[in-house]
């Protein structure tokens, strides 16, 4: 009999106990981020869209169009057209990544022997068409002007 009363008491007390928990959160801090106005502080290693690193002084990138990244890419999302300049050095003319295919794994960055690639903090990559998903790797979106 006492056991039953105890059980009933426990059952009844569990309801206000749960309500107290929600009440605690009612007066607690809200965690929502007001998205377009507020932004995340992205960590250093954030893996966004892949781009070529451009040297700040010379404004040139280190890419030699060797194609290692193309071979490393698991989903064949990179496309490269290269040419040879007057010093007989190969350089990329058109270098694009299809963000619809990209897995954002960073294997291309790892595979680059010249550390010419990085992944930037660009995450708003939604596009209205497949064509718009294909984005240039040159940091300002232009083709190489060498």
């Amino acid at each position: 009999m006492i056991r039953i009363i105890k059980e009933i008491y426990k059952a009844l007390i569990s309801l206000p106990a749960g309500m107290l928990v929600t009440l605690k959160y009612l007066f607690g801090r809200t965690v929502t981020m007001q998205y377009p106005e507020e932004r995340w502080i992205l960590p250093e290693r954030f893996r966004g869209r892949v781009v070529l690193i451009r040297d700040e002084k010379t404004l040139k990138h280190r890419c030699t169009a060797c194609g290692n990244c193309l071979r490393a890419c698991p989903n064949a999302s990179l496309r490269l057209e290269s040419a040879v300049d007057q010093n007989k050095k190969r350089y990329p003319v058109k270098f694009t990544v299809d963000t619809a295919l990209c897995l954002f794994c960073g294997l291309c960055v790892d595979s680059c022997p010249f550390n010419a690639l990085k992944m930037n903090k660009d995450y708003e990559l939604a596009a209205a068409s497949r064509e718009a998903c294909v984005r240039s790797l040159f940091p300002d979106g232009e083709n190489d002007d060498r």
Partner: peptide, 10 residues
Amino acid sequence: RLSAHFQSRI
């Protein structure tokens, strides 16, 4: 509004 604040939302 109340449900949001119960859930730490706005």
